[in-house]
Computed example of a mutant assay.
Amino acid sequence: MHGPANGPFYAIYYPALAIIGVPANLVAIIILSRGRCGLSRFITYYLVAIAVTDFLVMVTAVRYTPGCAVSTVLVYATRDGSVWLTVAFTFDRFVSICYQKLKTRYCTEKTALLVIGMVITLSYVKNVPFYFTYQPLYILDGVPWFCDIKSSYYTIPSWQAYDWLVHILTPFLPFFFILLLNALTVRHIVEASRARRRLKGSESAGDPEIANRKKSIVLLFTISLNFLLLWATYVGHFLYVRVTAEAYFTGLDFNDPHLIFVETTNMLQLLSSCNNTFIYAVAQNKFRNELKKLLTFPFAIITSCFRLNSAS
């Protein structure tokens, strides 16, 4: 085994990501749950659910646990839940913007809760078989350490079919749906905005409806592009493994280009579960205001205490 030249970088990156991602997602959960961001409740449900699954991804993926097979199932399940909740949110926005008649029936709190429950449940059911694909990476004094994928995973047809199914469901189908839904949504918004400008003429410059549509485009594009860009290497790695017939995991040589590619894929995946809070902060004025209040709240309490002590 070569010297782990890149090992220290990975050892620093994952804890640092946890230090940033865990509190960032907690902040998003708190702010969105308070319902003061000017969003309808069913939209808030989707965003809170995404934040919760992202939080669970950060907690389960960047900490070592003795039962790494169980941990892997939890990581994959929460990751898939986050991805498909992003798809569900994108579809909800597509219906809300493009189909006003269907909006009153579909875009409701009851539907949002039902969709969220189905997505989370199916995500866990889909990933349970992964528990049976792992074996110890090595055994030291009779104690199994870490996890390695069994060689049978690459040779038995049923496992190969399952591997294709897993990757088609996440992320190939989400890639397709998010691209399609965003393209249709943006086309509808652009056409509706043009028609509104023709009707309102010069008054359209300050039209709040057009401004709201632009915000919708920004939020949709930002969340979607975040997903597409940070998952692109995952798709590339899957295709690479299929073309070259190499294993997903090749050992612990941190100078191996394949391992570097694998770790880069993992790092970008985890990053996609870390930065939605920052996306909301950039795209939503009311979210930024609530974030400022939350961050300054402890200082406001301390200041009030000093003032009370001074007055007494």
Rank of each mutant, 00 (worst) to 15 (best):
M1C: 10
G3W: 12
G7D: 02
Y14S: 06
L26A: 09
L26V: 08
A28S: 13
I29M: 04
S33C: 07
G38Y: 02
F42N: 11
I43W: 15
A51T: 04
V57P: 01
A61W: 05
V62D: 07
G67S: 12
T72M: 14
V73C: 06
L74D: 04
L85A: 02
V87I: 00
T90A: 13
D92Y: 13
R93D: 03
F94W: 15
V95M: 04
R105K: 15
E109S: 14
T111F: 12
V115R: 06
M118R: 11
I120W: 11
V125A: 14
K126T: 13
Q135N: 02
Y138P: 01
D141N: 14
W145Y: 15
F146H: 15
D148Q: 02
Y153L: 02
T155P: 01
Q160D: 02
F172Y: 14
F176I: 14
F177N: 01
A183S: 00
A195S: 11
R197W: 00
R198Q: 13
D207N: 07
D207P: 05
E209F: 01
F221G: 15
W231K: 11
Y234P: 03
V235H: 09
V235Q: 09
Y240S: 05
T244H: 12
E246Q: 14
G251T: 06
D253L: 00
T265Q: 10
L271K: 03
S273W: 05
S273T: 13
C274Q: 08
N285K: 11
N285L: 12
F287N: 06
E290Y: 03
T296L: 15
P298Q: 00
I302Q: 00
S304C: 07
R307L: 14
N309P: 02
